[in-house]
Amino acid sequence: MLIFCCSFSPLLWAGQLDLFIQRVKVECPRAQALLVKKSLIEMIKGDETCQERYLQLLLAECQSLSCSDLVYIYKIAKEQSSGTVMGR
Protein backbone atom coordinates (compact mmCIF):
# COMPACT_ATOMS: atom_id res chain seq x y z
CA MET A 1 0.00 0.00 0.00
CA LEU A 2 1.42 3.35 -0.94
CA ILE A 3 1.45 5.99 1.77
CA PHE A 4 1.05 9.46 0.32
CA CYS A 5 2.65 12.06 2.52
CA CYS A 6 0.53 15.13 3.01
CA SER A 7 3.05 17.89 2.72
CA PHE A 8 4.65 19.16 -0.42
CA SER A 9 8.22 19.56 0.61
CA PRO A 10 9.92 22.72 -0.61
CA LEU A 11 13.18 20.83 -0.72
CA LEU A 12 12.83 19.50 -4.23
CA TRP A 13 15.78 17.40 -5.25
CA ALA A 14 18.12 19.42 -7.39
CA GLY A 15 21.82 19.49 -8.14
CA GLN A 16 24.37 19.13 -5.43
CA LEU A 17 24.84 22.92 -5.25
CA ASP A 18 21.16 23.65 -4.70
CA LEU A 19 20.77 20.82 -2.20
CA PHE A 20 23.71 22.02 -0.12
CA ILE A 21 22.57 25.67 -0.13
CA GLN A 22 18.98 24.77 0.71
CA ARG A 23 19.95 22.57 3.64
CA VAL A 24 22.41 25.09 5.08
CA LYS A 25 19.80 27.83 4.75
CA VAL A 26 17.30 25.70 6.67
CA GLU A 27 19.76 25.35 9.53
CA CYS A 28 21.09 28.90 9.31
CA PRO A 29 18.69 31.26 7.51
CA ARG A 30 20.93 34.32 7.83
CA ALA A 31 23.90 32.71 6.05
CA GLN A 32 24.68 34.61 2.84
CA ALA A 33 24.32 32.53 -0.31
CA LEU A 34 27.72 33.63 -1.64
CA LEU A 35 29.43 32.51 1.59
CA VAL A 36 27.64 29.14 1.44
CA LYS A 37 28.69 28.67 -2.20
CA LYS A 38 32.32 29.48 -1.44
CA SER A 39 32.21 27.06 1.50
CA LEU A 40 30.85 24.36 -0.81
CA ILE A 41 33.76 24.96 -3.20
CA GLU A 42 36.17 24.34 -0.32
CA MET A 43 34.38 21.12 0.58
CA ILE A 44 34.41 19.93 -3.02
CA LYS A 45 38.16 20.53 -3.02
CA GLY A 46 38.40 18.07 -0.13
CA ASP A 47 38.32 20.04 3.09
CA GLU A 48 36.33 17.93 5.55
CA THR A 49 37.87 19.45 8.66
CA CYS A 50 36.61 23.01 7.99
CA GLN A 51 40.07 24.54 8.13
CA GLU A 52 39.68 26.67 5.02
CA ARG A 53 38.78 30.35 5.13
CA TYR A 54 35.14 30.42 4.01
CA LEU A 55 34.16 27.36 6.00
CA GLN A 56 35.56 29.05 9.09
CA LEU A 57 33.57 32.20 8.24
CA LEU A 58 30.40 30.16 7.74
CA LEU A 59 30.82 28.40 11.08
CA ALA A 60 31.40 31.77 12.78
CA GLU A 61 28.26 33.13 11.11
CA CYS A 62 26.14 30.08 12.00
CA GLN A 63 26.67 29.15 15.61
CA SER A 64 24.03 26.42 15.34
CA LEU A 65 26.13 24.51 12.80
CA SER A 66 29.19 22.45 13.60
CA CYS A 67 31.83 21.21 11.18
CA SER A 68 30.44 17.68 11.37
CA ASP A 69 26.99 19.09 10.52
CA LEU A 70 28.40 20.73 7.39
CA VAL A 71 30.23 17.56 6.39
CA TYR A 72 27.00 15.58 6.86
CA ILE A 73 25.01 18.06 4.74
CA TYR A 74 27.69 17.97 2.04
CA LYS A 75 27.83 14.17 1.93
CA ILE A 76 24.04 13.86 1.80
CA ALA A 77 23.85 16.43 -1.01
CA LYS A 78 26.59 14.59 -2.90
CA GLU A 79 24.92 11.18 -2.50
CA GLN A 80 21.50 12.47 -3.39
CA SER A 81 22.77 13.98 -6.64
CA SER A 82 24.86 10.95 -7.62
CA GLY A 83 22.13 8.67 -8.94
CA THR A 84 23.48 5.62 -7.12
CA VAL A 85 20.27 5.22 -5.11
CA MET A 86 17.04 5.44 -7.08
CA GLY A 87 14.42 7.89 -5.91
CA ARG A 88 16.74 10.16 -3.94
Binding site: L2, F4, C5, S7, F8, S9, P10, L11, L12, W13, G83, M86, G87, R88
Partner: peptide
Protein backbone atom coordinates in the same frame (compact mmCIF):
# COMPACT_ATOMS: atom_id res chain seq x y z
CA UNK B 1 20.24 4.35 -17.48
CA UNK B 2 17.19 5.71 -15.70
CA UNK B 3 15.32 8.81 -14.65
CA UNK B 4 13.87 10.07 -11.37
CA UNK B 5 10.68 12.10 -11.61
CA UNK B 6 9.40 13.84 -8.48
CA UNK B 7 5.65 13.38 -8.64
CA UNK B 8 4.89 14.83 -5.20
CA UNK B 9 7.88 16.91 -4.18
CA UNK B 10 10.42 14.60 -2.58
CA UNK B 11 7.70 12.41 -1.10
CA UNK B 12 6.90 10.33 -4.19
CA UNK B 13 9.41 9.68 -6.94
CA UNK B 14 8.92 7.54 -10.04
CA UNK B 15 11.99 5.90 -11.60
Amino acid sequence: GYFDWNLLGDNLIFS
